[in-house]
Design a protein around this nucleic acid. Structure first.
Lengths: 203, 203
DNA sequence: CACAGAAGTTGGACTCAGTACAACAATACG
DNA sequence: CGTATTGTTGTACTGAGTCCAACTTCTGTG
Protein backbone atom coordinates (compact mmCIF):
# COMPACT_ATOMS: atom_id res chain seq x y z
CA UNK A 1 0.00 0.00 0.00
CA UNK A 2 2.38 2.72 1.14
CA UNK A 3 6.11 2.34 0.84
CA UNK A 4 5.93 1.44 -2.82
CA UNK A 5 5.77 5.03 -4.03
CA UNK A 6 9.07 5.51 -5.73
CA UNK A 7 8.31 7.75 -8.68
CA UNK A 8 11.21 10.09 -7.97
CA UNK A 9 13.00 8.62 -5.01
CA UNK A 10 16.65 8.43 -4.52
CA UNK A 11 18.12 5.00 -5.19
CA UNK A 12 17.92 2.40 -7.90
CA UNK A 13 14.67 2.00 -9.79
CA UNK A 14 12.54 -1.07 -9.44
CA UNK A 15 12.80 -3.34 -12.41
CA UNK A 16 9.74 -5.14 -13.68
CA UNK A 17 10.41 -8.10 -11.44
CA UNK A 18 7.02 -8.03 -9.85
CA UNK A 19 5.10 -8.45 -13.06
CA UNK A 20 7.52 -11.11 -14.25
CA UNK A 21 7.02 -13.10 -11.07
CA UNK A 22 3.26 -12.86 -11.25
CA UNK A 23 3.21 -13.97 -14.83
CA UNK A 24 5.55 -16.88 -14.29
CA UNK A 25 3.58 -17.98 -11.26
CA UNK A 26 0.30 -17.88 -13.16
CA UNK A 27 1.69 -20.09 -15.87
CA UNK A 28 3.34 -22.55 -13.54
CA UNK A 29 0.33 -22.91 -11.28
CA UNK A 30 -1.67 -23.98 -14.29
CA UNK A 31 1.00 -26.32 -15.55
CA UNK A 32 2.01 -27.96 -12.29
CA UNK A 33 -0.61 -26.92 -9.72
CA UNK A 34 0.01 -24.66 -6.79
CA UNK A 35 1.52 -27.26 -4.51
CA UNK A 36 3.64 -28.63 -7.33
CA UNK A 37 5.29 -25.30 -7.99
CA UNK A 38 8.16 -24.16 -5.83
CA UNK A 39 9.25 -20.59 -5.37
CA UNK A 40 12.47 -21.52 -7.06
CA UNK A 41 10.59 -22.66 -10.17
CA UNK A 42 8.84 -19.35 -10.29
CA UNK A 43 11.89 -17.17 -9.84
CA UNK A 44 13.88 -19.20 -12.32
CA UNK A 45 11.29 -18.78 -15.02
CA UNK A 46 10.91 -15.12 -14.17
CA UNK A 47 14.64 -14.64 -14.44
CA UNK A 48 14.92 -13.27 -10.93
CA UNK A 49 16.67 -14.41 -7.80
CA UNK A 50 14.85 -16.26 -5.10
CA UNK A 51 15.72 -13.53 -2.64
CA UNK A 52 13.98 -11.01 -4.86
CA UNK A 53 10.76 -12.93 -4.58
CA UNK A 54 10.52 -11.97 -0.96
CA UNK A 55 11.08 -8.33 -1.81
CA UNK A 56 7.72 -8.34 -3.50
CA UNK A 57 5.71 -11.02 -1.74
CA UNK A 58 5.86 -12.05 1.85
CA UNK A 59 4.71 -15.57 1.09
CA UNK A 60 3.91 -17.86 -1.79
CA UNK A 61 0.22 -17.53 -1.07
CA UNK A 62 0.38 -13.76 -1.57
CA UNK A 63 0.36 -14.47 -5.27
CA UNK A 64 -3.18 -15.74 -4.99
CA UNK A 65 -4.91 -13.12 -2.95
CA UNK A 66 -3.82 -9.78 -4.29
CA UNK A 67 -7.17 -9.02 -5.89
CA UNK A 68 -9.01 -9.98 -2.79
CA UNK A 69 -6.96 -7.51 -0.81
CA UNK A 70 -8.01 -4.82 -3.24
CA UNK A 71 -11.63 -5.92 -2.84
CA UNK A 72 -11.46 -5.47 0.91
CA UNK A 73 -9.70 -2.14 0.52
CA UNK A 74 -12.56 -0.91 -1.59
CA UNK A 75 -15.13 -2.01 0.96
CA UNK A 76 -13.25 -0.16 3.66
CA UNK A 77 -13.21 3.04 1.63
CA UNK A 78 -16.88 2.87 0.75
CA UNK A 79 -17.79 2.27 4.37
CA UNK A 80 -15.76 5.22 5.54
CA UNK A 81 -17.55 7.48 3.07
CA UNK A 82 -21.02 6.35 4.06
CA UNK A 83 -23.29 8.98 5.65
CA UNK A 84 -24.48 8.22 9.16
CA UNK A 85 -28.10 8.29 8.12
CA UNK A 86 -28.00 4.89 6.46
CA UNK A 87 -28.89 1.93 8.65
CA UNK A 88 -25.65 0.24 9.66
CA UNK A 89 -26.23 -3.13 8.06
CA UNK A 90 -27.57 -1.51 4.91
CA UNK A 91 -24.39 0.48 4.62
CA UNK A 92 -22.38 -2.68 4.87
CA UNK A 93 -24.49 -4.47 2.32
CA UNK A 94 -24.16 -1.67 -0.16
CA UNK A 95 -20.43 -1.45 0.32
CA UNK A 96 -19.97 -5.16 -0.22
CA UNK A 97 -22.25 -5.40 -3.22
CA UNK A 98 -20.71 -2.36 -4.84
CA UNK A 99 -17.26 -3.76 -4.46
CA UNK A 100 -18.44 -7.03 -5.95
CA UNK A 101 -19.77 -5.16 -8.95
CA UNK A 102 -16.24 -4.16 -9.84
CA UNK A 103 -15.06 -7.75 -9.95
CA UNK A 104 -15.57 -8.59 -13.58
CA UNK A 105 -15.41 -12.09 -14.94
CA UNK A 106 -12.15 -11.02 -16.52
CA UNK A 107 -10.38 -10.32 -13.28
CA UNK A 108 -11.10 -13.35 -11.22
CA UNK A 109 -8.55 -13.79 -8.48
CA UNK A 110 -6.18 -16.64 -9.08
CA UNK A 111 -7.19 -18.30 -5.87
CA UNK A 112 -10.77 -18.42 -7.01
CA UNK A 113 -10.57 -19.08 -10.69
CA UNK A 114 -8.32 -22.06 -10.44
CA UNK A 115 -9.74 -23.61 -7.35
CA UNK A 116 -10.03 -27.14 -8.62
CA UNK A 117 -7.00 -27.00 -10.80
CA UNK A 118 -4.49 -26.14 -8.20
CA UNK A 119 -4.93 -28.85 -5.62
CA UNK A 120 -4.06 -28.27 -1.99
CA UNK A 121 -7.44 -26.72 -1.30
CA UNK A 122 -7.02 -26.66 2.40
CA UNK A 123 -3.74 -24.89 2.15
CA UNK A 124 -5.30 -22.34 -0.16
CA UNK A 125 -8.19 -21.87 2.19
CA UNK A 126 -5.88 -21.36 5.12
CA UNK A 127 -3.81 -18.86 3.22
CA UNK A 128 -6.94 -16.85 2.56
CA UNK A 129 -7.72 -16.42 6.22
CA UNK A 130 -5.88 -13.17 6.80
CA UNK A 131 -8.06 -11.61 4.11
CA UNK A 132 -11.22 -12.95 5.66
CA UNK A 133 -10.02 -11.63 8.99
CA UNK A 134 -9.43 -8.24 7.49
CA UNK A 135 -12.95 -8.12 6.10
CA UNK A 136 -14.27 -9.02 9.52
CA UNK A 137 -12.17 -6.28 11.06
CA UNK A 138 -13.33 -3.68 8.56
CA UNK A 139 -16.98 -4.50 9.10
CA UNK A 140 -16.51 -4.67 12.86
CA UNK A 141 -15.00 -1.22 13.03
CA UNK A 142 -17.83 0.24 11.04
CA UNK A 143 -20.52 -1.35 13.18
CA UNK A 144 -18.70 -0.36 16.32
CA UNK A 145 -18.73 3.27 15.22
CA UNK A 146 -22.36 3.23 14.25
CA UNK A 147 -23.61 1.29 17.23
CA UNK A 148 -21.37 2.20 20.14
CA UNK A 149 -23.95 0.97 22.62
CA UNK A 150 -23.95 -2.58 21.32
CA UNK A 151 -22.12 -5.42 22.98
CA UNK A 152 -18.94 -6.64 21.38
CA UNK A 153 -20.52 -10.04 20.94
CA UNK A 154 -23.30 -8.75 18.73
CA UNK A 155 -20.96 -6.56 16.74
CA UNK A 156 -18.47 -9.25 16.04
CA UNK A 157 -21.00 -11.96 15.33
CA UNK A 158 -22.63 -9.69 12.78
CA UNK A 159 -19.28 -9.00 11.19
CA UNK A 160 -18.28 -12.66 11.16
CA UNK A 161 -21.59 -13.77 9.75
CA UNK A 162 -21.49 -11.15 7.05
CA UNK A 163 -17.97 -12.04 6.03
CA UNK A 164 -19.04 -15.66 5.98
CA UNK A 165 -21.88 -14.90 3.63
CA UNK A 166 -19.55 -13.01 1.32
CA UNK A 167 -17.12 -15.91 1.32
CA UNK A 168 -19.95 -18.30 0.53
CA UNK A 169 -21.06 -16.17 -2.38
CA UNK A 170 -17.55 -15.96 -3.76
CA UNK A 171 -17.02 -19.68 -3.43
CA UNK A 172 -20.33 -20.45 -5.04
CA UNK A 173 -19.78 -18.01 -7.83
CA UNK A 174 -16.35 -19.34 -8.64
CA UNK A 175 -17.54 -22.92 -8.53
CA UNK A 176 -20.22 -22.10 -11.07
CA UNK A 177 -17.63 -22.07 -13.81
CA UNK A 178 -17.60 -19.98 -16.94
CA UNK A 179 -21.39 -19.81 -16.99
CA UNK A 180 -21.50 -17.78 -13.81
CA UNK A 181 -23.48 -14.60 -13.67
CA UNK A 182 -22.65 -11.46 -11.76
CA UNK A 183 -20.86 -11.77 -8.46
CA UNK A 184 -22.71 -8.75 -7.14
CA UNK A 185 -26.07 -10.51 -7.41
CA UNK A 186 -24.81 -13.57 -5.62
CA UNK A 187 -23.30 -11.47 -2.88
CA UNK A 188 -26.54 -9.59 -2.46
CA UNK A 189 -28.54 -12.79 -2.21
CA UNK A 190 -26.16 -14.26 0.33
CA UNK A 191 -25.79 -11.17 2.47
CA UNK A 192 -29.40 -10.02 2.64
CA UNK A 193 -30.64 -12.56 5.17
CA UNK A 194 -27.76 -11.73 7.47
CA UNK A 195 -28.65 -8.05 7.30
CA UNK A 196 -32.30 -8.78 7.89
CA UNK A 197 -31.45 -10.84 10.92
CA UNK A 198 -29.04 -8.41 12.54
CA UNK A 199 -30.56 -5.04 11.69
CA UNK A 200 -33.25 -5.20 14.40
CA UNK A 201 -30.79 -6.49 16.98
CA UNK A 202 -28.51 -3.54 16.33
CA UNK A 203 -31.55 -1.29 16.75
CA UNK B 1 -11.67 -41.12 17.42
CA UNK B 2 -11.52 -44.17 15.24
CA UNK B 3 -8.22 -45.83 14.58
CA UNK B 4 -7.10 -45.46 18.15
CA UNK B 5 -8.96 -48.49 19.43
CA UNK B 6 -6.19 -50.85 20.23
CA UNK B 7 -7.24 -52.45 23.51
CA UNK B 8 -6.38 -55.96 22.37
CA UNK B 9 -4.79 -55.66 18.98
CA UNK B 10 -1.95 -57.65 17.72
CA UNK B 11 1.33 -55.77 17.73
CA UNK B 12 3.20 -53.59 20.14
CA UNK B 13 1.19 -51.50 22.57
CA UNK B 14 1.13 -47.76 22.37
CA UNK B 15 3.12 -46.14 25.05
CA UNK B 16 1.84 -43.00 26.72
CA UNK B 17 3.56 -40.82 24.19
CA UNK B 18 0.47 -38.92 23.20
CA UNK B 19 -0.30 -37.62 26.64
CA UNK B 20 3.34 -36.82 27.23
CA UNK B 21 3.51 -34.79 24.06
CA UNK B 22 0.36 -32.87 24.86
CA UNK B 23 1.57 -32.07 28.33
CA UNK B 24 5.00 -30.97 27.20
CA UNK B 25 3.49 -28.84 24.47
CA UNK B 26 1.11 -27.15 26.87
CA UNK B 27 3.95 -26.20 29.17
CA UNK B 28 6.26 -25.03 26.43
CA UNK B 29 3.64 -22.94 24.66
CA UNK B 30 3.14 -21.05 27.90
CA UNK B 31 6.84 -20.66 28.55
CA UNK B 32 8.00 -19.76 25.06
CA UNK B 33 4.87 -19.05 23.03
CA UNK B 34 3.59 -21.15 20.20
CA UNK B 35 5.89 -19.77 17.54
CA UNK B 36 8.86 -19.96 19.86
CA UNK B 37 8.40 -23.66 20.48
CA UNK B 38 9.71 -26.16 17.97
CA UNK B 39 8.52 -29.69 17.58
CA UNK B 40 11.93 -30.80 18.66
CA UNK B 41 11.60 -28.91 21.94
CA UNK B 42 8.33 -30.67 22.56
CA UNK B 43 9.50 -34.15 21.79
CA UNK B 44 12.68 -33.69 23.76
CA UNK B 45 10.81 -32.67 26.86
CA UNK B 46 8.31 -35.45 26.34
CA UNK B 47 11.11 -37.96 26.03
CA UNK B 48 9.97 -39.10 22.64
CA UNK B 49 11.48 -39.06 19.18
CA UNK B 50 10.59 -36.40 16.69
CA UNK B 51 9.34 -39.04 14.33
CA UNK B 52 6.90 -40.23 16.95
CA UNK B 53 5.30 -36.81 17.08
CA UNK B 54 3.96 -37.36 13.61
CA UNK B 55 2.51 -40.68 14.60
CA UNK B 56 0.10 -38.83 16.82
CA UNK B 57 -0.33 -35.44 15.21
CA UNK B 58 -0.25 -34.53 11.58
CA UNK B 59 0.93 -31.01 12.28
CA UNK B 60 2.06 -28.78 15.10
CA UNK B 61 -1.24 -26.95 15.02
CA UNK B 62 -3.13 -30.16 15.73
CA UNK B 63 -2.11 -29.73 19.32
CA UNK B 64 -4.34 -26.70 19.55
CA UNK B 65 -7.56 -27.81 17.99
CA UNK B 66 -8.31 -31.24 19.32
CA UNK B 67 -11.19 -30.07 21.49
CA UNK B 68 -12.68 -28.08 18.69
CA UNK B 69 -12.75 -31.17 16.55
CA UNK B 70 -14.70 -32.92 19.26
CA UNK B 71 -17.07 -29.97 19.41
CA UNK B 72 -17.84 -30.24 15.72
CA UNK B 73 -18.24 -33.99 15.99
CA UNK B 74 -20.87 -33.50 18.63
CA UNK B 75 -22.76 -31.02 16.49
CA UNK B 76 -22.76 -33.46 13.62
CA UNK B 77 -24.18 -36.21 15.79
CA UNK B 78 -26.90 -34.05 17.26
CA UNK B 79 -27.93 -32.86 13.84
CA UNK B 80 -28.16 -36.38 12.50
CA UNK B 81 -30.47 -37.34 15.35
CA UNK B 82 -32.78 -34.38 14.91
CA UNK B 83 -36.38 -35.16 13.88
CA UNK B 84 -37.51 -33.68 10.59
CA UNK B 85 -40.31 -31.75 12.23
CA UNK B 86 -38.01 -29.09 13.64
CA UNK B 87 -37.41 -26.06 11.47
CA UNK B 88 -34.02 -26.45 9.82
CA UNK B 89 -32.30 -23.43 11.32
CA UNK B 90 -33.75 -24.17 14.73
CA UNK B 91 -32.29 -27.62 14.57
CA UNK B 92 -28.91 -26.16 13.82
CA UNK B 93 -29.15 -23.63 16.59
CA UNK B 94 -30.05 -26.24 19.13
CA UNK B 95 -27.27 -28.51 18.04
CA UNK B 96 -24.70 -25.75 18.29
CA UNK B 97 -25.89 -24.42 21.61
CA UNK B 98 -26.09 -27.88 23.11
CA UNK B 99 -22.58 -28.65 22.06
CA UNK B 100 -21.43 -25.37 23.56
CA UNK B 101 -23.06 -26.32 26.84
CA UNK B 102 -20.60 -29.17 27.17
CA UNK B 103 -17.63 -26.89 26.90
CA UNK B 104 -16.94 -26.07 30.50
CA UNK B 105 -14.63 -23.33 31.63
CA UNK B 106 -12.30 -26.09 32.73
CA UNK B 107 -11.80 -27.52 29.29
CA UNK B 108 -11.00 -24.52 27.20
CA UNK B 109 -9.17 -25.46 24.03
CA UNK B 110 -5.55 -24.46 24.04
CA UNK B 111 -5.98 -22.39 20.94
CA UNK B 112 -8.65 -20.34 22.62
CA UNK B 113 -7.52 -20.06 26.20
CA UNK B 114 -4.06 -18.81 25.44
CA UNK B 115 -4.83 -16.66 22.50
CA UNK B 116 -2.88 -13.62 23.54
CA UNK B 117 -0.11 -15.47 25.23
CA UNK B 118 1.00 -17.50 22.33
CA UNK B 119 1.73 -14.91 19.70
CA UNK B 120 1.46 -15.73 16.03
CA UNK B 121 -2.26 -15.09 16.01
CA UNK B 122 -2.58 -15.20 12.31
CA UNK B 123 -0.87 -18.51 12.10
CA UNK B 124 -3.16 -19.85 14.77
CA UNK B 125 -6.17 -18.50 12.97
CA UNK B 126 -5.09 -20.09 9.74
CA UNK B 127 -4.49 -23.42 11.40
CA UNK B 128 -8.05 -23.33 12.67
CA UNK B 129 -9.54 -23.07 9.22
CA UNK B 130 -9.99 -26.76 8.54
CA UNK B 131 -12.17 -26.95 11.65
CA UNK B 132 -14.22 -23.99 10.59
CA UNK B 133 -14.58 -25.58 7.18
CA UNK B 134 -15.77 -28.78 8.74
CA UNK B 135 -18.43 -26.98 10.73
CA UNK B 136 -19.57 -25.31 7.53
CA UNK B 137 -19.71 -28.67 5.81
CA UNK B 138 -21.69 -30.29 8.60
CA UNK B 139 -24.25 -27.51 8.65
CA UNK B 140 -24.42 -27.44 4.87
CA UNK B 141 -25.20 -31.11 4.62
CA UNK B 142 -27.95 -30.81 7.16
CA UNK B 143 -29.58 -27.86 5.41
CA UNK B 144 -29.22 -29.54 2.06
CA UNK B 145 -31.12 -32.56 3.35
CA UNK B 146 -33.85 -30.51 4.94
CA UNK B 147 -34.27 -28.06 2.09
CA UNK B 148 -33.48 -29.94 -1.12
CA UNK B 149 -35.28 -27.33 -3.17
CA UNK B 150 -33.03 -24.48 -2.10
CA UNK B 151 -30.21 -23.10 -4.19
CA UNK B 152 -26.69 -23.98 -3.23
CA UNK B 153 -25.96 -20.32 -2.70
CA UNK B 154 -28.55 -19.91 0.01
CA UNK B 155 -27.57 -23.14 1.70
CA UNK B 156 -23.94 -22.37 1.82
CA UNK B 157 -24.30 -18.75 2.81
CA UNK B 158 -26.49 -19.83 5.70
CA UNK B 159 -23.91 -22.38 6.73
CA UNK B 160 -21.02 -19.95 6.40
CA UNK B 161 -22.81 -17.22 8.29
CA UNK B 162 -23.76 -19.58 11.05
CA UNK B 163 -20.26 -20.90 11.42
CA UNK B 164 -19.03 -17.32 11.46
CA UNK B 165 -21.36 -16.45 14.30
CA UNK B 166 -20.17 -19.46 16.27
CA UNK B 167 -16.58 -18.44 15.72
CA UNK B 168 -17.35 -14.91 16.84
CA UNK B 169 -18.97 -16.19 19.99
CA UNK B 170 -16.03 -18.43 20.77
CA UNK B 171 -13.54 -15.66 20.16
CA UNK B 172 -15.50 -13.21 22.25
CA UNK B 173 -15.96 -15.68 25.04
CA UNK B 174 -12.33 -16.57 25.21
CA UNK B 175 -11.27 -12.95 25.09
CA UNK B 176 -13.49 -12.24 28.09
CA UNK B 177 -10.94 -13.83 30.36
CA UNK B 178 -11.58 -15.75 33.55
CA UNK B 179 -14.74 -13.76 34.25
CA UNK B 180 -16.50 -15.19 31.23
CA UNK B 181 -19.93 -16.69 31.59
CA UNK B 182 -21.36 -19.66 29.76
CA UNK B 183 -20.29 -20.22 26.19
CA UNK B 184 -23.70 -21.60 25.36
CA UNK B 185 -25.37 -18.28 26.10
CA UNK B 186 -22.92 -16.38 23.96
CA UNK B 187 -23.36 -18.81 21.11
CA UNK B 188 -27.11 -18.51 21.35
CA UNK B 189 -26.95 -14.72 21.26
CA UNK B 190 -24.62 -14.73 18.29
CA UNK B 191 -26.44 -17.36 16.29
CA UNK B 192 -30.02 -16.25 16.80
CA UNK B 193 -30.02 -13.33 14.37
CA UNK B 194 -28.55 -15.54 11.68
CA UNK B 195 -31.33 -18.06 12.18
CA UNK B 196 -33.97 -15.36 12.20
CA UNK B 197 -32.62 -13.99 8.95
CA UNK B 198 -32.33 -17.26 7.10
CA UNK B 199 -35.33 -19.20 8.36
CA UNK B 200 -37.87 -17.41 6.11
CA UNK B 201 -35.58 -17.62 3.10
CA UNK B 202 -35.28 -21.35 3.52
CA UNK B 203 -39.09 -21.46 3.36
C1' DC C 1 32.37 15.54 -12.32
C1' DA C 2 33.08 13.01 -8.24
C1' DC C 3 31.09 11.21 -4.47
C1' DA C 4 27.93 10.13 -0.68
C1' DG C 5 24.04 7.93 0.26
C1' DA C 6 19.40 5.85 -0.84
C1' DA C 7 17.03 2.06 -2.68
C1' DG C 8 17.01 -2.48 -5.33
C1' DT C 9 19.02 -6.98 -6.18
C1' DT C 10 21.56 -11.03 -5.22
C1' DG C 11 23.92 -15.17 -3.11
C1' DG C 12 24.40 -17.88 0.67
C1' DA C 13 23.73 -19.76 5.10
C1' DC C 14 20.41 -20.86 8.29
C1' DT C 15 15.94 -22.71 10.94
C1' DC C 16 12.01 -25.23 11.00
C1' DA C 17 7.81 -27.94 9.42
C1' DG C 18 6.51 -31.81 7.15
C1' DT C 19 7.46 -36.29 4.25
C1' DA C 20 9.39 -40.84 3.31
C1' DC C 21 11.29 -44.94 4.51
C1' DA C 22 13.95 -48.48 6.26
C1' DA C 23 15.48 -50.53 10.53
C1' DC C 24 14.39 -51.97 15.14
C1' DA C 25 11.42 -53.29 19.36
C1' DA C 26 7.51 -55.23 21.57
C1' DT C 27 3.56 -57.88 21.63
C1' DA C 28 -0.31 -61.34 20.51
C1' DC C 29 -1.32 -65.51 18.37
C1' DG C 30 -0.71 -70.02 16.41
C1' DC D 1 9.31 -70.85 19.51
C1' DG D 2 8.46 -68.51 15.32
C1' DT D 3 5.88 -65.01 12.82
C1' DA D 4 2.97 -61.48 11.56
C1' DT D 5 1.52 -57.07 13.31
C1' DT D 6 1.93 -52.77 15.16
C1' DG D 7 4.54 -48.94 17.49
C1' DT D 8 8.93 -46.40 17.67
C1' DT D 9 13.12 -44.46 16.10
C1' DG D 10 17.06 -42.68 13.07
C1' DT D 11 18.08 -40.51 9.06
C1' DA D 12 17.90 -38.15 4.98
C1' DC D 13 15.33 -35.15 2.30
C1' DT D 14 12.34 -31.05 0.31
C1' DG D 15 10.64 -26.57 0.52
C1' DA D 16 9.08 -22.18 2.89
C1' DG D 17 10.56 -18.34 5.14
C1' DT D 18 14.37 -15.36 7.63
C1' DC D 19 18.62 -12.90 7.92
C1' DC D 20 22.37 -10.48 6.34
C1' DA D 21 26.28 -8.88 4.07
C1' DA D 22 27.84 -7.79 -0.51
C1' DC D 23 27.04 -5.50 -4.79
C1' DT D 24 24.55 -2.57 -8.30
C1' DT D 25 22.05 1.28 -10.03
C1' DC D 26 20.33 5.43 -9.41
C1' DT D 27 19.80 10.69 -7.55
C1' DG D 28 21.08 14.84 -5.48
C1' DT D 29 24.66 17.87 -3.88
C1' DG D 30 29.25 20.26 -3.44
Amino acid sequence: MAGAMHSSGRGRRRSSSRAAIEEAAGELFLENSYAGTTIEHITTRAGVSRASFFNYFSAKSDLLWGDVDAFVDEIAETLAAQPATVAPMDAVRHAVVDAARNVGADKIPLAVSQWELMGAREELLASGVPRYARLVAVVSVHLQNRCPAQSGLIISSAAFALAGAVAAAAANWSAAGPSRGSLAEDVDTAVSPVCVGFEPVLR
